[in-house]
Computed example of a mutant assay.
Amino acid sequence: MTELLTIILLGIVEGVTEFLPVSSTGHLILAGRLFGFHGEGQGTFDIVIQLGAILAVVVLYWRRFWHVLEGLLRGDKGAIVFTRNVALGFLPSAVIGLFVYKGVKALLTSPTLGPVVVAIALIVGGVIILLVEKFVKHPPEGSVETMTWRTALGIGVVQCLAMIPGVSRSGATIMGALGLGTDRKTAAEFSFFLAVPTMLAASGYDLLKSHEGIGEGGWTAIGIGFVVSFVVAMLVIRWFLNIVTRHGFAPFAWYRIAAGTIALILLAII
């Protein structure tokens, strides 16, 4: 497989999985192992191309973000609460991420340990999603603006679990939100909004640490992956909201369990 085709396929994997509770980073690690794309360059590539998917959120929800900005300038309570909640949700991962960065990067770049951790995390996460879907009650639809600061901060704490490859940032935030009494649609949308500062910070910090070792070829790969993930994520986000509103998250849980099991089998063979 040519390097260009590998980069395009990885960009598609990122765009499809970033906002699904299946772990985009975990899928990139497994796909990188399958395609023979691993090492220091892969770690930075996996983190930074996620900005393409994040840009899709900004484009699709630009009116929402613009109204929040206008509201902040007017001192609107809803806009202030929205901004506060996103900031509180982001805060725990921003603090903890500084201390665990090296360990996480080591897992991301390990061609042996990383894929095994991902496979196990996929299975465990799938089981947790099924348990949350079965036992947690689903309240009437709300919004990010009606979410309490305690709920937003609690979701942010749960999001930190996603620093383990394979856990899924969106999965952790959505399940955390459901467990704290948020409805499905609001949980999914808050996960989208929370991804913007979280992934901007993660990508910026990684680039600050690793930019000297990327090289011209690495930047080209990141650029292509960025564009592909952006286009694919634009198509996936609306579809995902329709699925979870109608059918919940169980389909993604069963997928995680199946994917993790198959990954463990393949890793034992290859």
Score class of each variant (00 low, 15 high):
Leu4Met: 09
Gly97Trp: 09
Gly215Val: 02
Gly156Tyr: 02
Thr83Met: 13
Ser110Phe: 08
Glu40Val: 13
Ile155Thr: 05
Glu18Phe: 04
Thr148Ile: 13
Ala195Val: 05
Ile155Phe: 05
Phe35Leu: 14
Gly36Trp: 05
Ile123Ser: 03
Gly114Gln: 06
His138Asp: 13
Ala162Ile: 00
Glu3Val: 08
Phe240Ser: 01
Gly179Leu: 13
Leu88Met: 14
Ile164Asp: 00
Ala233Pro: 06
Ile222Asn: 01
Gln50Phe: 08
Leu69Ala: 15
Ser229Met: 09
Phe19Ile: 11
Gly103Ile: 04
Ser24Phe: 02
Leu180Thr: 12
Ile237Tyr: 11
Trp254Met: 08
Glu133Leu: 10
Tyr101Ile: 08
Gly78Leu: 10
Ala188Asp: 04
Phe82Tyr: 14
Leu51Arg: 06
Asp76Asn: 14
Glu141Trp: 11
Glu145Leu: 09
Leu72Trp: 09
Cys160Ser: 05
Val157Leu: 11
Ser24Arg: 01
Asn242Cys: 05
Val81Met: 06
Pro92Tyr: 13
Ser168Leu: 10
Gly15Tyr: 03
Ile49Arg: 02
Gly39Leu: 03
Ala195Pro: 01
Gly103Met: 10
Gly26Lys: 00
Gly223Ile: 09
Leu91Ala: 15
Gly142Asn: 08
Lys209Ala: 14
Gly39Glu: 07
Val158Ala: 10
Ala258Thr: 10
Glu18Gln: 15
Ile222Cys: 07
Glu189Val: 08
Gly156Trp: 00
Ile128Asn: 06
Ser229Ala: 15
Ala152Thr: 14
Ala177His: 07
Phe230Ile: 04
Leu20Arg: 02
Leu20Ser: 02
Lys77Glu: 11
Gly248Trp: 14
Arg64Gly: 01
